[in-house]
Design a protein around this nucleic acid. Structure first.
Lengths: 134, 134, 134, 134
DNA sequence: GTGGTCTAGACCACT
DNA sequence: GTGGTCTAGACCACC
């Protein structure tokens, strides 16, 4: 896939309270998990990405650095940033493909019932906590 | 219900990245939404709660302050904090009771498939984004 | 031990080619390894340390962030940075106490022979490589 | 000696944090210091070396350029690169031959004790700093 | 061309 | 008063 297209799909909200660099990280991670970004793919350059997202290059750089720490990407000085080849993505894809339909159903229904995003997040967190206990 | 029992159910994780005062707020909100906390119920005192949760009283105070701003609780000088009587909780309960089963099913399945909490959160956020678009 | 004294012992050389934040990290790590810094000890605040070392707070912050990633310290937002309690330092101390005398002897002799620091570093790296091979 | 054999002994690690061109430089310098490379010896061509080490020719060129600046090699247009005839290597060899045994002992012992390479480097740097002070 | 470091300073969030 | 985020921009290092 073209990296240029990817950049256009980012949805960053500077006023959400969630740090921008974290939003960037999460969307890149999700791209990896869904297969939109595949191991070996080169990410856009820091400055280019920063420009297209209207943000400071340092902020993009911070996201890249953290993603590298977490093993999602490999940054080669002077060469660019690449989706890590070590990632076992097929496994993740399978899990996600199986999990998505039910989650989609749950979210759609909740929205139809009028739950706010916040209420939905709290509901999910509560479910996660319960499972952690047992 | 007894407030003492409630306090024992709080699950705060200082290392989750989520601010502690926010975790407290969310769990109190969720308690209201599920009916575990009902309008008129008295919350534990700030110092008591802080002590039992091993956290700074200022942090509890901040959570209470925010909850009051958002209308979830009423703080009466010298008397303590109470779940707001004005809340129309029955409506929320109904919505949540209907939404919970599907969400529970989705979360349980996802966990069985081996998705991490992080992956699940990103999956839901992605679904929320898609609904916002359309 | 007083944190103030520690700060005075830092020896940073901005012109060494080694990034300042790395030098800071290494000296803090070495402090942990020698026992000069013990688990639970609070590090000086970012701004204070930056001031006493005549550098930018962001640079200190970067060192702290990386040290946290590597598990040497725990940074609690609003509270400060602390040597990680999880570190098994006694084991490291023992190893180091046993290794130091020989290394000291080797370095002293090498310097008396007139080896430059660079030559010494290359010598050690060559020895490390040889051991990795076998 | 054959230059071909030398090339096979290079051990470059792109993930060590140390720039590749520097690793190359250091290993050539160390080769000179140990006598593996003697004044007048011809180094492999830039393209050949780059190919055999799977790296960018520019990177090899940079290493050669720096080595020339520092007087370790002489680059003769169209003829290739040669270990500088001006180097007074015998002196260095003697120093190194005397210093190596102790360093070897120190490194071997440290590794047996379980010290990581990082810990060993920090230990030596700390010793160097102490000697500089006194 | 790429990414990395460092500075300077504003503003925010947490305890 | 603590650390965190973000911006702006200079300068360097690497490939």
């Amino acid at each position: 896939m073209t990296v240029e297209l990817l950049a256009m799909h980012f949805r960053l909200n500077p006023n959400s309270g969630v740090p921008i660099y974290l939003q960037l990280m999460e969307q890149i991670k999700h791209g990896v998990e869904t297969g939109a970004l595949r191991p070996g793919d080169q990410l856009p350059g820091i400055r280019k990405l920063a420009e297209s997202l209207v943000m400071n290059p340092n902020t993009v750089a911070k996201a890249f650095r953290e993603l590298e720490h977490e093993g999602y990407i490999e940054v080669r000085h002077g060469a660019g940033a690449f989706i890590s080849e070590r990632l076992n993505t097929s496994e993740v894809h399978d899990r996600l493909d199986l999990a998505r339909p039910l989650m989609e159903k749950a979210v759609v229904q909740a929205r139809q019932l009028g739950l706010t995003d916040e209420e939905l997040r709290r509901l999910m967190e509560a479910e996660l906590l319960q499972l952690s206990d047992s």
